[in-house]
Design a protein around this nucleic acid. Structure first.
Lengths: 145, 145
DNA sequence: CTTTCTGCAAAAGGTTTGCAGTTAG
DNA sequence: CTAACTGCAAACCTTTTGCAGAAAG
């Protein structure tokens, strides 16, 4: 089953409707594979002749993030499709500071270490979202810095 | 030497001037100990009768972040004074999702593990900024959720 | 057919820019 | 004194809200 159909299934199973705008935003996120802002999504759609109001895009993204089907990449201020299948409470990114390329991963060991540190501070952890910056192999090769 | 004086010393040593607006913003960040937005800083100052233009505050914060004297907490969209003395490339936060309380820390082990993962993806890492969310002891006690 | 969702208009918020005048060193 | 910095006005971009009409199931 395709990436998008899995997401649509999640929508349906949680009582949300499968609508044209939601399918279009998911399609864009799946295709671009990099963080895109709401207005960027609108432009991409417009080039295909598929207009969506920006308010609608904001609302669709809110919903996708609520369902963990997408994430807001804080470092870059854009949204990406979530690429993990499970690992509910662990969403980690390495982000290339040059080109914005990113990889999502989950890691139990990191979670445990962070939990231990948090406990020392009197925190009980829940979600592990983390981002950290580096330079990807492409940009290293191009020596774009 | 006080927190603020250390920061002012950094400014001076890097060729930046020590000005009234910069001192005031640093003072606010040091006092509040939680993430505050530019406009919040302006309000806090106004209550003390110390007006600063919001543009100035934006520019001071940009500079402080550039020098690693402050950080933008992405999860909350506010700025905090950096509380680490060294550990240049490692700035990590646990953030309470209820009250916004946070703790900054650095951890070599986490950096090494993240480096290894990044390498697998073809990334060369540089800065390790990470944030993750939990609930702090105060909010656990108050059961505010 | 009814509830959920979208589009539109408008407002509210946040951030940036250029320039003239002020200030630190 | 002079380069660096601040304040102001205005523009710009992002995000939110309320409501009327459209569409999903």
């Amino acid at each position: 089953m395709s990436q998008i159909h899995v997401a649509l299934q999640v929508l349906r199973s949680r009582g949300y409707r499968v609508t044209e705008p939601r399918k279009r935003v998911l399609k864009v996120l799946t295709e671009v594979q990099r963080p895109v802002s709401p207005y960027e999504i609108q432009e991409i759609l417009q080039r295909k002749g598929e207009y969506l109001n920006h308010v609608t895009i904001y609302r669709v993204l809110d919903l996708l993030c609520l369902l963990n089907l997408a994430h807001k990449v804080l470092m870059l201020g854009g949204f990406v499709k979530c690429t993990l299948e499970e690992e509910d409470g662990c969403h980690r990114f390495v982000v290339c500071r040059e080109c914005g390329a990113l990889r999502e991963y989950a890691d139990k060991e990191l979670c445990e270490e962070e939990n231990a540190i948090a406990e020392e501070f009197g925190f009980r952890t829940e979600q592990h979202f983390s981002e950290f910056s580096g330079v990807c192999s492409k940009c290293i090769a191009l020596a774009r810095f």
